[in-house]
Design a protein around this nucleic acid. Structure first.
Length: 821
RNA sequence: GCGGGAGUGGCGGAAUUGGCAGACGCGCUGGACUUAGGAUCCAGUGGGUAACACCGUGCGGGUUCGAGUCCCGCCUUCCGCACCA
C-alpha cells in the first residue's frame, strides 16, 4: 500500500483496519473511563444534550445515529476546547409505541424493553459516541419514574393538575385517549386509525396558564428560528374582544340566559354581524331552542356528537341548523338569528361566534348556503358600502369602515380599538387575548406508563400518594391489553388496585391511568447529572452546576410537543423553588432528516439503512463522517450507498500520511499556510454545525498535502489528527498514540490557529470589463487600484476588451477589479 | 387554505457581508500499474466551440458597474397546521 507520490523510503505503514482499531479503542475507552465526565469537579461545564431515543425492537435507526453523531462532534470539539463536557444518553422506553409492539409480538414490555436497550447500547457503543454510560437512564425503571410521579405531585400540589370530563380523542385501534398533538389530520399518529370523540375523566396540566410566559421567553432563547416560530404558532396568541349579545327569547325557548358571549378578533366588523353561531355542544343550545326547532336541533347535535373528529374537521361543506331564537346586535340593535353549526368549536374562545359573512371566509360560505344576510362593513380604497362582494373581504390591513354609523371612513386598525371602546361603554365588550394552546391531557388508559400517584378514598376524595411511598410501582401483570371500556388494564389487578387511603387509612382505590410519555421526557435532562441520587429527583448543587442545558440537539418533529412541555415543567419547578432557572435549554438546534436516494426511508419502501451493516463494512469512523458529509446538518441529506467510499478514501490517506510522516527538516510553507487556513475553517464550521464543509476543508487539505509529492512532515499531519478527531474518533486516537502521545487525543487540546502562517502572499484578483470576467491577475494582497489597473491593461486577454475610454473603475481589494468602458 | 423551508452540473452538495458560480465528494471518460481490478495512482469532467465568442443557479420582470444572493410577480416541491372566529 505505498503511493507513488510519497518517496520510496516511506515505511510500510501497515494497513488501515477500522474493525480492529475501533474495537481496540472502544475497549480502551471503557477501561480508562475516557468518556467519563467529572460531574462534581470539572471546570467549564458543558452539557451537550441530545434527544434520547425510544429503544425500538428494530434497533438503532440511521436517523438516530445522524442525530447523535452531530451532537457527539459538538461535544468532543468542546472537550478539545477545554470544557468539561457531559454527554449522557438514556432511553425513552414507555409509551404506546412500545406497548403496541409488545402486543403485536406477544412479549411483555418488561421483558422486551431490556432486550431492546441492550441492543441499542451495543450499537451506540459501536458507533463510538462519547457517552458517559454511568449516567444513563431508562424512563421505565422505577427509580426514574418514581421522580416522574414526584413531578406530577408537584403540579398537583401547585393546583396545576386537575381532572375533568372532557371530549377526548379516542383511538379505537389503540384503545386509548390521544393528546390533540397525537392526532394527525384526524387520525391516530401511531396507527393511522380514524379518531373518535369520547367523554372521559382525564387528568390535565394547566399549561395554558403559562401561555404568555412560554411565548415571551421565546424571544431570549438561542434556538433555531423555525422551532421558535413553530412554538409561537402553536401557542397561537390572538388579540380581540369578548362581545356580549343580548338574547331575545323566542316562543318556546326556555332560556333564562340574557346574554351570549363571543370572542372576535374583528370587533370593527360588528355592524356586519348578521347572525350568531354556537358550537353544537354549547351549554345554552338546549334552552335557546324553540319548540318548533327542537327535533331538528336535537338530531343535528346527536349527529355531530357521534361524528368522528375527522369528518367534523376536514369536511369542507358547512352544515348547521337554526335554533329559532334571536339575539340583538349591540351595534345595530337589530335581531339576528342564532344558529348552531359544527364549524364552531367549543374548545376555542367561548364556543360561540358572531358571524360576519362579508368579512370571513367560513361565515360567507355558511351564509351563502343558508341564505343569511351579507352586509359589507369594510371597503378597500375606491370602494364603498354598495360595492358588490362576490367573495368575503378579509383583509384587515388596508380597508376602511363603511355602513357603521359614526365609524364610517375609519381605518380598520383604528376601528378595532374604537368600536371595542364604544361597546365597552355599554358593557357590551372587553378586550381579550386568546390562545390556541390547550391544557395538556396527560392521562392514558393504558398499561405501559408510570401510574399516576393518586388514591381515591370514599371519605377523603382524591389523595396524592406521599412522596415517601413513591414509586407507585407498575405491577408486572400478564394481561396488559387495553379493551374498549376506557378503563385501564391496571383496574383489573385487584391486589394493586386496592390501597389504603394515605389520609385516613381506609380502603381506597388507585388511579388506574398512567401518564403520557411526554411527561417522562419533560424533565429527563434534570435527572442525568443526578443519576444515582436516591433522595431527590435531582441534586441541588449538581443541578446548579450543570443546568440549564448548554446545548440541545434534536429533531424538529419535537419542535412543539416535547420542547414546549419541557419548558413548561421547568417553569413550574422554578416557580416552586426547586430550580433557579426557568428555561431548560439555553441553545437548541434542530437537525435535518436523512432520506435515501431522494425518498424517505420506510420499511414498506425497503430502503431503510441498516447501520450495523455499514459500520461492519466501512467502520464507524467512515460511517459517522459520511453521515456528516451528506449535507448541512440542520437540513439533513440524501444517503447514497456509494458516497461513503470517498470518505473512507480520505481516512485512508490520512492514515497513510500519518504513518509515513517524519520530523526531519521543516514543514513546507505552502502546506503550512493551507493547514492554518484549514484549522480556521474547521474551528469556525463546527460551532455552526456546518460539518459537511468542515470535512470538505480537511479533504482539501489532504489533497494539498498529496500534491506536494513529498513525504509529509509530522507537523503537517499531527494537527489534522486533532481536527478530524471529533468526526472519526477511533482513527484519531490510534494515530495520536502512534505519534507517541500517551493521553487521549480528546485531552490534547485543539490546534492553534496562526493568522500569520495562514496569510496568503498573493491573491487572485478577478478582472471584469463591464461586469464580465475577462481575466485573473495574481497580485500581492495590498496592491493599489492604480497598480491593479496597470496590470490589467498589460494583460492582452483583458486589454482587447478595453475598446474605449474607461469611464468607471470598481476596485474591491483582494477580490475584484471591474472596468466600465 | 394558512404558516415555514427549498429549487444550483448526471447525483449529493459549496459559495459569512451582492464581487472569479459549481469547493468537496460520488459518478463518468481516458491513462498508469497489473495475471486481474469493483484496489491504488494520474489527468479530465456545467453546456457549447477547433479555439474563442457565447449560454448557464425553477420561470418572468426590476435595482446595480456587478445578482445564486436584494426587490416585485409567478411556478414547482417538501414539511408543519388544518373551520382557532
Amino acid at each position: 500500500m505505498t503511493s507513488p507520490n510519497f518517496s520510496d523510503d516511506a515505511v510500510d505503514p501497515g494497513a488501515y483496519d477500522p474493525a480492529a482499531l475501533e474495537a481496540k479503542w472502544q475497549q480502551r475507552w471503557r477501561e480508562l473511563g475516557t468518556n467519563h465526565t467529572d460531574i462534581s469537579g470539572g471546570d467549564r461545564p458543558f452539557y451537550a444534550l441530545m434527544m434520547f431515543p425510544y429503544p425500538s425492537a428494530e434497533g438503532l435507526h440511521v436517523g438516530n445515529l445522524f442525530a447523535f453523531t452531530g451532537n457527539d462532534i459538538f461535544g468532543r470539539f468542546h472537550r478539545q476546547q477545554g470544557h468539561t463536557v457531559f454527554q449522557p444518553l438514556g432511553y425513552d422506553a414507555f409509551g404506546i409505541h412500545s406497548e403496541n409492539y409488545a402486543l403485536k409480538v406477544g412479549v411483555h414490555p418488561m421483558r422486551l424493553i431490556p432486550k431492546n436497550i441492550a441492543n441499542f447500547r451495543r450499537q451506540l457503543e459501536r458507533a463510538g459516541l462519547m457517552i458517559d454510560w454511568r449516567y444513563s437512564l431508562d424512563t421505565t425503571a422505577p427509580d426514574y419514574y418514581a421522580w416522574t410521579q414526584w413531578v406530577f405531585l408537584q403540579l398537583y400540589n401547585r393546583g396545576l393538575a386537575y381532572k375533568k370530563k372532557a371530549a377526548v380523542n379516542w383511538c379505537p385501534s389503540c384503545k386509548t385517549v390521544l393528546a390533540n398533538e397525537q392526532v394527525v389530520a384526524g387520525a391516530c399518529e401511531r396507527c393511522g386509525t380514524v379518531v373518535e370523540q369520547r367523554f372521559l375523566e382525564q387528568w390535565f396540566f394547566r399549561i395554558s396558564d403559562y401561555a404568555q410566559r412560554l411565548l415571551d421567553n421565546l424571544e431570549r432563547l438561542d434556538w433555531s428560528d423555525t422551532t421558535r416560530m413553530a412554538q409561537r404558532d402553536w401557542i397561537g396568541r390572538s388579540e380581540g374582544a369578548q362581545v356580549r349579545f343580548s338574547v331575545a327569547v323566542a316562543p318556546g325557548a326556555t332560556t333564562d340566559a340574557t346574554h351570549l358571549a363571543v370572542f372576535t378578533t374583528r370587533p370593527d366588523t360588528i355592524f356586519g354581524a348578521t347572525y350568531m353561531v354556537l358550537a353544537p355542544e354549547h351549554p345554552l343550545v338546549e334552552q335557546l331552542t324553540t319548540d318548533a326547532q327542537r327535533p331538528a336541533v336535537s338530531a343535528y347535535r346527536e349527529r355531530s356528537a357521534r361524528q368522528d373528529i375527522v369528518s367534523r374537521k376536514t369536511t369542507k361543506e358547512k352544515t348547521g341548523i337554526f335554533t329559532g331564537s334571536f339575539a340583538l346586535n349591540p351595534a345595530t340593535g337589530k335581531e339576528i338569528p342564532i344558529w348552531i353549526a359544527d364549524y364552531v368549536l367549543m374548545e376555542y374562545g367561548t364556543g360561540a361566534i358572531m358571524a360576519v359573512p362579508a368579512h370571513d371566509e367560513r361565515d360567507f360560505e355558511f351564509a351563502t348556503k343558508f341564505g343569511l344576510d351579507i352586509v359589507r362593513v369594510v371597503a378597500a380604497e375606491g370602494e364603498d358600502a354598495g360595492t358588490p362582494l362576490d367573495a368575503p373581504f378579509t383583509n384587515d390591513e388596508g380597508g376602511h369602515i363603511v355602513a357603521s354609523a359614526q365609524f364610517d371612513g375609519m381605518p380598520v386598525a383604528e376601528a378595532k380599538a374604537a368600536i371595542t371602546q364604544w361597546l365597552s361603554g355599554g358593557e357590551h365588550a372587553t378586550p381579550v387575548t386568546n390562545y390556541r394552546l390547550h391544557d395538556w391531557c396527560i392521562s392514558r388508559q393504558r398499561y405501559w406508563g408510570p401510574p399516576i400517584p393518586i388514591i381515591y378514598c370514599d371519605s377523603c376524595g382524591a389523595q396524592p400518594v406521599p412522596v415517601a411511598d413513591l414509586p407507585v410501582v407498575l405491577p408486572d401483570i400478564p394481561d396488559f391489553k387495553p379493551d374498549d371500556s376506557g378503563i385501564s388494564p391496571l383496574a383489573r389487578h385487584a391486589e394493586w388496585y386496592h390501597a389504603p387511603c394515605p389520609r385516613c387509612g381506609k380502603d381506597g382505590r388507585r388511579e388506574t391511568d398512567v401518564s403520557d410519555t411526554f411527561l417522562d421526557s419533560a424533565w429527563y435532562f434534570l435527572r442525568y447529572p443526578s443519576v444515582g441520587h436516591d433522595e431527590a429527583a435531582f441534586d441541588p448543587s449538581i443541578t446548579r452546576k450543570w443546568l440549564p442545558v448548554t446545548s440541545y440537539i434534536g429533531g424538529n418533529e419535537h419542535a412543539v410537543l416535547h420542547l414546549l412541555y419541557a419548558r413548561f415543567i421547568t417553569m413550574v419547578l422554578h416557580d416552586m423553588g426547586h430550580i433557579d432557572f426557568e428555561e431548560p435549554f439555553t441553545r437548541f438546534r434542530a437537525h435535518g432528516l436523512i432520506v435515501r436516494d431522494g425518498s424517505k426511508m420506510s420499511k414498506s419502501r425497503g430502503n431503510v439503512v441498516n447501520p450495523d451493516q455499514f459500520v461492519e463494512q466501512w467502520g464507524a469512523d467512515s460511517f459517522r463522517t459520511y453521515l456528516m458529509f451528506l449535507g448541512p446538518y440542520e437540513e439533513g441529506g440524501d444517503f447514497r450507498d456509494g458516497g461513503i467510499s470517498g470518505v473512507r478514501r480520505f481516512l485512508e490517506r490520512l492514515w497513510l500520511a500519518a504513518r509515513v510522516a517524519h520530523s526531519d527538516g521543516v514543514p513546507d510553507p505552502v502546506v503550512q499556510r493551507k493547514l492554518h487556513q484549514t484549522i480556521a475553517k474547521v474551528s469556525s464550521d463546527i460551532p455552526r454545525l456546518s460539518y459537511n464543509t468542515a470535512i470538505a476543508a480537511m479533504m482539501e487539505y489532504m489533497n494539498t498535502l498529496r500534491k506536494g509529492e513529498r513525504v509529509p512532515h509530522r507537523a503537517e499531519v499531527e494537527p489534522v489528527v486533532q481536527l478530524v478527531a471529533p468526526f472519526a474518533p477511533h482513527i484519531a486516537e490510534e494515530l495520536w498514540e502512534r505519534f507517541g502521545h500517551s493521553a487521549s487525543v480528546f485531552d490534547s487540546g485543539w490546534p492553534a490557529f496562526d493568522a500569520d502562517l495562514a496569510r496568503e502572499e498573493t491573491v487572485q484578483l478577478a478582472v471584469q470589463v463591464n461586469g464580465k470576467l475577462r481575466g485573473t491577475l495574481t497580485v500581492v494582497p495590498h496592491i493599489t487600484q492604480d497598480d491593479a489597473v496597470a496590470a490589467a491593461r498589460a494583460e492582452p486577454g483583458i486589454a482587447k476588451f478595453l475598446t474605449g475610454e474607461v469611464r468607471k473603475i470598481i476596485f474591491v481589494p483582494r477580490r475584484l477589479l471591474n472596468l466600465v468602458v
